[in-house]
């Protein structure tokens, strides 16, 4: 019985001593470094928007298209979105339609905050959504509209049938 007590005491001692030693050997300091940089990401969901005038009614009617999730932004700072045309006219190479026939509206409804607004397209940068809060995959719906007052005017009416195009550039900048 006495031997058993001594053996048990030694075994317990070795167990705790050994455990503590083992723990001491596995204990250390790990430094986790986080390097965070400002980043902004932008994508547009639709490469093209087309307005077709193939009937008399089309010229006398507001035409508009709302592209859902047209712009998607991820940013770790608040940001602005502006828009501009890359030229003064929609053109088929010979004939021109002024870009000012088109209104572009940032539509509230996506996940992107900020202050949305409507602009008449020009070659000057114009904000369509300002001071949007930072976030990931924030979406903005965009409405493109040519009012009947413009499509029934000489800006469009009477122009030769053709494909008139212009590039429209959306710009993302940190606040």
């Amino acid at each position: 019985m006495k031997n058993l007590f001594i053996i048990s005491t030694l075994a317990l001692g070795v167990f705790f001593f050994g455990t503590n030693n083992a723990q001491a050997q596995s204990t250390g300091t790990t430094t986790v470094n986080l390097t965070l940089s400002d980043v902004i990401s932008l994508e547009t969901s639709a490469a093209e928007v087309n307005f077709v005038y193939d009937t008399a009614e089309a010229y006398n009617t507001d035409q508009e298209y709302t592209v859902e999730d047209n712009i998607k932004v991820t940013s770790n700072k608040n940001f602005d979105i502006s828009v501009k045309a890359n030229g003064a006219n929609f053109t088929d190479g010979t004939n021109n339609i002024p870009v000012g026939v088109l209104d572009i509206t940032a539509v509230a409804g996506g996940t992107m905050g900020g202050t949305p607004t409507t602009v008449t397209l020009s070659t000057t940068d114009q904000d369509i959504n300002t001071n949007a809060a930072l976030g990931s995959e924030l979406t903005l719906d965009v409405n493109y509209k040519i009012p009947a007052t413009r499509s029934s005017s000489s800006d469009i009416l009477g122009k030769p049938a053709a494909s008139y195009t212009q590039e429209v550039t959306y710009t993302a900048t940190a606040l």
Partner: peptide, 11 residues
């Protein structure tokens, strides 16, 4: 045929 927009982006 019609009026077309090509959307691009800029940072």
């Amino acid at each position: 045929d019609g009026i077309g927009i090509i959307t691009l982006f800029e940072f």
